[in-house]
Computed example of a mutant assay.
Amino acid sequence: MGALDHILDWFEVTPRRKKRKAMQTVEIKVKMDCDGCERRVRNAVCSMKGAKTVEVNRKQSRVTVTGYVDPNKVLKRVKNTGKRAEFWPYVPYNLVAYPYVAQAYDKKAPAGYVKNAVQALPSPNAPDEKFTTLFSDENPNACSIM
């Protein structure tokens, strides 16, 4: 054993390793009007440590960053370019049970997307819900004339 090993054993110092961030995809909504805006946002995000791929879709006002990054740091970096930015508030239309519920339908949403809002289920005593479940296969008391 060398002197350094002896000292390290005496102090019981173990090298600490940083936890690596998980690979994730961060989507941000940013209003971009021109090529200069797009280039400024792309350069700000591409220079981040851990960013693997950056996709900018100016038509949808969407920036997608994939890599070992912190979502809050990506949002902060985009905001530092002088643009108003927020996390991507939309989900695909086919993943929502009631896409036209209050606060979910947004005219500004890209085609095929609705706002990610809390989905309220209809009241089980509502008349339209009673007629819908009357002939349901999941209802054990349903009518079996078919």
Rank of each mutant, 00 (worst) to 15 (best):
R62N: 13
E12R: 00
N72V: 04
P99C: 15
D128P: 01
F87P: 00
T25Q: 07
C37E: 11
A97W: 13
N139R: 05
K83Y: 10
A111W: 11
P15D: 10
A44I: 03
A3W: 07
A120T: 07
P140H: 05
V13G: 00
T14V: 09
A3Q: 12
A111M: 13
M48H: 03
P92E: 09
N139D: 01
W10Y: 10
Y113E: 08
R62H: 14
K115P: 02
L4E: 03
Y90D: 09
T66N: 02
R42K: 14
V65A: 03
K52R: 14
K18R: 14
D33S: 11
Y100K: 13
S144T: 11
G36S: 13
H6C: 07
T25A: 02
T81H: 01
Q24C: 06
K31C: 06
T81V: 10
A22R: 15
A22H: 12
P89Y: 02
M1H: 05
Q103T: 09
A3R: 11
V114F: 11
D33V: 09
V96I: 15
F87E: 00
T53C: 02
T81C: 11
E27A: 09
P124A: 00
N139S: 01
H6Q: 14
L4G: 09
V96L: 14
E129F: 09
Y105R: 08
P99Q: 13
V91Y: 06
V96W: 12
P122M: 05
N80H: 10
L95K: 15
L121G: 01
E27V: 06
T25L: 01
V101Q: 14
R39H: 12
M32L: 09
K108Y: 11
K18C: 04
C34A: 13
R20D: 15
C34W: 09
P110D: 14
R42P: 00
K79W: 06
P99F: 11
M48S: 06
K115Y: 07
V69N: 04
C46F: 04
G2C: 02
V63G: 06
P89L: 07
R77D: 03
K21D: 09
Y93R: 13
P71N: 02
S47P: 04
Y105P: 02
L8D: 01
P122I: 00
R84C: 02
A104P: 02
L8P: 04
E12K: 07
C37L: 09
S47Q: 06
F135V: 12
V96C: 12
N57W: 04
T25D: 03
